[in-house]
Design a protein around this nucleic acid. Sequence first.
DNA 1: TAAGGTCTTTGACATAGATCAAGGTTATCG
DNA 2: CGATAACCTTGATCTATGTCAAAGACCTTA
Lengths: 244, 244
Amino acid sequence: MRSIPIKVSLDSIKASCGSCSLHELCLPMGLSQEDTELLDQTVNKRRKLARGEHLYRVGDPFQALYAVRSGFFKTLHLGGNGREKIVGFYMPGEVLGMDAISIDRHQYSTMALEDSIVCDIPFAELEHLIGVIPSLQYHFHRLMSGDINAGKRHMLLLDNTRAEERLAGFLLSLSQRFAARGYSPTQFNLRMTREEIGNYLGLTIETISRLFSRLQKEGLVNVQNREVKINDLVKLRGMVGHCD
Amino acid sequence: MRSIPIKVSLDSIKASCGSCSLHELCLPMGLSQEDTELLDQTVNKRRKLARGEHLYRVGDPFQALYAVRSGFFKTLHLGGNGREKIVGFYMPGEVLGMDAISIDRHQYSTMALEDSIVCDIPFAELEHLIGVIPSLQYHFHRLMSGDINAGKRHMLLLDNTRAEERLAGFLLSLSQRFAARGYSPTQFNLRMTREEIGNYLGLTIETISRLFSRLQKEGLVNVQNREVKINDLVKLRGMVGHCD
DNA sequence: TAAGGTCTTTGACATAGATCAAGGTTATCG
DNA sequence: CGATAACCTTGATCTATGTCAAAGACCTTA
């Protein structure tokens, strides 16, 4: 949509799996150095996306998985009636596109919420490597299983009937994922609009706005535009019914 | 819970993957005869469960996947507050437990809704076989990916804000799955209570009951206890926003 | 730096579905 | 076969969140 200059240097784009700070979160987790180098030959293309650009769209033929290197993505479903539903947010170290393996076409569109970089992982080559490197097989199965769990967790989040519980659960999930990446669990920047949060949680933008106001009034969080500061992680956890 | 005599003959329990009528839906799909025999040596244990019996519970160590041979299962999450949430229903040919691969423990409990038979698939052995049989690797990845999709579809179902849409989507999903197994897509037996349907859809039992009454009054379906007959599949599809 | 657009906040009101309550039906098991 | 428990239906009322509306804050681009 908008064309925004991308400031990322070429160096970071050329960097290999071996030297990638995310390799503990991503595919090469637990691989030996030699195996990582093998994988590196497969994961050869890095791609830059500007904010608003699509990584792939519904119906595109499935060819590769994508590891988020930097930036932030949303995946969305397009309903028959034109309705858009956001089904996931993805941050660095997470792998996109595994749902398409079973149908050979992407079921969801994926869009960058900010300037981002992904690593292309051609799937045919990955499957070949998996046959050759047992520990890669092991890790890939865990990765897919983790995606199954992420989906179930989102569903449990949506099951919380009270809007407040859903938003609390959402904030906690972000908090956890930022923490896993070495960022502050209590202070972070929302990459998505209120509307996108509402869509993701099955609520309206107005409800999200009111909830942020209320949580702030109660002193649980501070929200200044997209900047969130969680003041009472424990109390926030207490608000969520079953999500963890 | 209740102990109900199981009438299934031993023969059907001993039957192999090769002769299993579900093998087009289950793991051995697309395998050669020799490879199916190899798989058969791994999938050696069949297990009977009476209605109300647990296949596994939250926290149990993960050791095997389970293919539903006959019967019907629900999987449920136990919230911190004692709240139970049903996260899935499973019918013959579907494979249970893949979410546990990534964490080595089962995250959800699984209970038989009627007398059932499952095939145990010890996971360590399966992973070994996958390294040996490329087409099994290919198929297993598709199977996991399919589970990712099932989760996303459930989520989209829950996103339909109107209760009516959710129930319609639920009925359609059952219809489709029965059809894929050679049963009538328009006439089938609900294996679960109204309460379980409500729980699964994020609605109360009263709402489910009222909806069935209304759909019946409108002539869309006939519901007699657990027996459902869909009179107008097209109109029912029209009711669902985005779920397809 | 100003104009335009996008995003957010807040208020008033409407409504779908939850909750509470009671009675009816069906299945289970001694 | 009859008692008991589990399950289901329907009605009356309440409430959280959606919807509609308007105004304010913030970013972007010229």
